[in-house]
């Protein structure tokens, strides 16, 4: 399997982090970064990661199903909208935001748009409780999201815009 030079460099860095006989530690970081590049955790990726960390494909497969951010099959959309509805967000309208997103995108939980551009997921606590309700698009956080802001984000995405091109709503940055 071939990856981009950037990802290969990252893999090399991951593998260098751990002791010589403990390369299996790189399994999860490799899977999640590779998923970002190729879109999902494919059987080929499982076999490739297994080979590189010295595991069996089954050992990697066991890991894949355990972690909720790893997606098999076709994976999630290019822009994966994650709405938190856990307790702190729930209290501040997170569930309603999720409903709003679902209706607007015509997508249910873990569904992907036909063109593969957008997907939706109702997620568990993402660690933004004091700035609820919170939304993540891929790895970017949006805090204190209002229905209006969400509408703008979703409209933008549906029009094929990247989130960073949607001027009205800014991600939290650091």
């Amino acid at each position: 399997m071939t990856f981009s030079p950037e990802l290969e460099a990252r893999f090399a860095k991951f593998l260098a982090k751990y002791p010589e006989d403990r390369k299996r530690s790189a399994t999860i970081p490799m899977l999640i970064y590779a998923q970002d590049e190729i879109g999902s955790v494919t059987p080929e990726l499982v076999a490739e990661v297994a080979k590189r960390v010295g595991s069996t494909p089954l050992q990697v497969e066991e890991v894949v199903g355990f972690y909720s951010m790893l997606h098999k099959g076709k994976g999630m959309g290019k822009y994966h909208v994650q709405v938190c509805t856990n307790i702190s967000c729930l209290l501040r309208g997170g569930a309603e935001l999720y409903e709003q997103a679902s209706q607007k995108l015509h997508l249910g939980h873990k569904q992907v748009s036909a063109d593969g551009f957008v997907s939706l997921e109702e997620v568990e606590c993402m660690g933004a409780c004091s700035w609820a309700p919170a939304v993540q698009i891929n790895y970017d956080f949006y805090h204190d999201v209002t229905p209006e802001q969400l509408d703008k984000l979703l409209s933008g995405l549906m029009a094929g815009k990247k989130p960073e091109e949607i001027a009205e709503v800014k991600k939290v940055s650091c």
Binding site: P43, T56, P57, L58, Q59, E61, E62, V64, F66, Y67
Partner: peptide, 20 residues
């Protein structure tokens, strides 16, 4: 041999074979 593993999480966990 290690031909069996556990996949998924929680109540939907299942035993899985090494050949997919």
């Amino acid at each position: 041999v290690a031909a069996l593993g556990v996949v998924n999480r929680g109540a939907v966990s299942l035993i899985a074979p090494n050949g997919g």
